[in-house]
């Protein structure tokens, strides 16, 4: 458990939208399976008084927090308003804010994250699938059927690639402690380093799979910062320079952040790097054998 557990009460912003409604349903199905609290309040301005899958909806975060004990939130608000939602939640005192929304202008993200930091809130994302701690809590949109409980933490800048790796791990009999998607944008709240710090304090986590991609050097920075055994994978070896590979942050700019130099730096720091996702389970097993 690193960002929440069964006892975590979750608020969803953008609760009455298509995405919000759909995923409140899935998050609460998961909560029922594991005996957790799940989503207990929703917020959509102007829709206060409605219900979504039995969850009461409020006009503002403050109203919702007056009635419910929530410490985490998941944001499904469209890009133009999502940064404001992050600020509203930080202002309301929510500890952990998961922003699923893609395409938020980066200047809005920088301001919202700076504000949240000043308020003592933690932002995960934006442009991320959220997190799932098997047997405890799901905050976001990850397909829970692929997961199994265990001792390997997974941190990723991606969504579906994370599911691919989790699926491989589960099939190989390797369970996960917490799986977290930190987001595909250039500016994100929790970086590899921040999550690794939490994993270090988590007694359940014995090793970490780090799934990175082209753009920036947050993977190397994170791997350097921890003593936990790590297996890494970096996507985008075939990415041409100055082209955005789907994610706003997945771009080789000014000759920096290309996959090969990232992989070389990771290896130089003693981190084994898988050359394809299907190699990861065997490499994790090798980690467990040596430590």
């Amino acid at each position: 458990m690193i960002y929440g557990d069964k006892k975590t009460g979750i608020l969803v912003q953008g609760a009455t939208g298509k995405q919000g409604e759909f995923h409140i349903g899935l998050m609460n199905t998961y909560a029922r399976e594991v005996g957790g609290r799940g989503v207990i309040a929703g917020v959509t301005p102007g829709k206060g008084g409605q219900q979504v899958h039995g969850v009461p909806v409020y006009n503002t975060v403050k109203e919702a927090m007056r009635e419910h004990d929530v410490t985490a939130s998941v944001i499904f608000v469209p890009a133009g308003a999502a940064a404001d939602s992050i600020i509203e939640e930080a202002n309301g005192g929510i500890e952990t804010i998961v922003a699923i929304t893609e395409h938020i202008p980066v200047h809005d993200t920088m301001k919202a994250i700076a504000y949240a930091q000043a308020q003592g809130s933690v932002v995960i994302g934006p442009n991320c699938p959220g997190l799932l701690t098997p047997g405890e809590v799901k905050m976001g949109i990850m397909p829970s059927g692929l997961f199994s409980r265990g001792s390997v933490g997974v941190i990723s800048r991606s969504g579906t690639l994370t599911y691919e790796v989790v699926d491989e791990l589960t099939r190989a009999g390797i369970g996960q402690s917490t799986v977290i998607g930190i987001g595909g944008d250039p500016v994100i709240g929790q970086t590899f380093m921040d999550v690794l710090e939490r994993f270090e304090k988590d007694p359940q986590t014995k090793a970490v799979v780090l799934i990175g991609e082209v753009g920036g050097n947050l993977e190397e920075e994170g791997a350097k910062s921890t003593d936990l055994p790590i297996v890494a994978y970096i996507a985008g070896k075939s990415a041409p320079p100055d082209k955005r590979m789907g994610h706003a942050g997945a771009i080789v700019e000014g000759g920096e952040g290309d996959a090969r130099s990232k992989i070389a730096r990771l290896k130089k720091n003693g981190v084994p790097v898988a050359s394809r996702p299907s190699e990861i389970p065997e490499m994790v097993r090798a980690l467990f054998r040596t430590c």
């Binding site: 991606s158 969504g159 579906t160 690639l161 082209v214 070896k237 075939s238 994610h247």
Partner: peptide
């Protein structure tokens, strides 16, 4: 054709591999 940027990139890399 893939879904998700990471998975699609990983598919390209696998082709190269």
């Amino acid at each position: 054709i893939g879904n998700g940027a990471g998975l699609t990139m990983a598919t390209l890399d696998l082709i190269e591999f």
